[in-house]
Design a protein around this nucleic acid. Sequence first.
DNA 1: AGATATTGTTTTATATCATAACAATACTTA
DNA 2: TAAGTATTGTTATGATATAAAACAATATCT
Lengths: 159, 159
Amino acid sequence: MTDASKENGTGTAAVTIPAMQDIIGYKLRRAQLVVFQDFLDTFSKIKLRPAEFSVLTLIAQTPGQKQTEIAEQLGIKRANFVALMDGLEKRGLAERRKAETDKRSHSLHLTPEGVEFTKKMAALWNTHEQRMIDRLGGPAERDTLLALLDRLLGAKPTK
Amino acid sequence: MTDASKENGTGTAAVTIPAMQDIIGYKLRRAQLVVFQDFLDTFSKIKLRPAEFSVLTLIAQTPGQKQTEIAEQLGIKRANFVALMDGLEKRGLAERRKAETDKRSHSLHLTPEGVEFTKKMAALWNTHEQRMIDRLGGPAERDTLLALLDRLLGAKPTK
DNA sequence: AGATATTGTTTTATATCATAACAATACTTA
DNA sequence: TAAGTATTGTTATGATATAAAACAATATCT
């Protein structure tokens, strides 16, 4: 029995002290750190961090979105997105364009160099992701993991 | 097909741009944040953060270990452990005792109040963990998830 | 005994993340 | 149309997490 609450025969519910290894949140955190470390090692050669990777990926996927839209999808506060985007722009990978329809907003695009960079990035990512899939045991296990994680993500607190 | 690399019929391997939702590391991170948020909400009433929870749990489980041992198990740098332990000590939940055998080290113990506190903590944790298990679909799915996460944790980079 | 290692600690640097305020622009509605 | 309100990108700032370097006290090794 791995459940944390059990009956102890006295009529009172015993509160079992959890074992850290069996705690969902703890193991999630440790696993995330391990996977991110592999990511960081993999991408150190092109000096790209996870947040930058995700932004370039979203821009490549759907060019023209504005900053707030990209930031929101990734759970990045728009205030913190500014420096991140500044970095990508200074490296010549992405650019802000004044939107015609809404002069407040910037629509985001990859530069030609950004397109090239993104290809190398995606190739690197493949090696990283394949390593993670191998560790899991194969694509079926990867799919299972993603499905379970989706369940955790599913119902955000209504509050 | 959710694989990132496929054949495109030209004889050259196409590098597919990953979809963020299918990236193991990304989904892991998002799920971890959601679970931690539930933890934070649950434990805000007793002002306890995840790191403090884990330290109290390990001390309760095995009293008398020294700081470095506890810190190492949790992946906390011993330098950063000091302030954390200071906090628990100031709250009267745990204490450092001079070790007889090694005057450099401190052996860590719960105070009587710490023991009481830990019971309330464990009860709160049960509600949190049960919520996570419910989201996953049940204890079987929880076990599956933990097993998959263990695989990711298994082979730390030899480097 | 002398060299070397470990323990807890302080200090410091960096990265991450959240909040508040602001100017420019857009939208709503009276 | 004018006035009030909301949104967008931005700056500034604070909180937290994390890592590294150095140090004194003590332990261990040779």
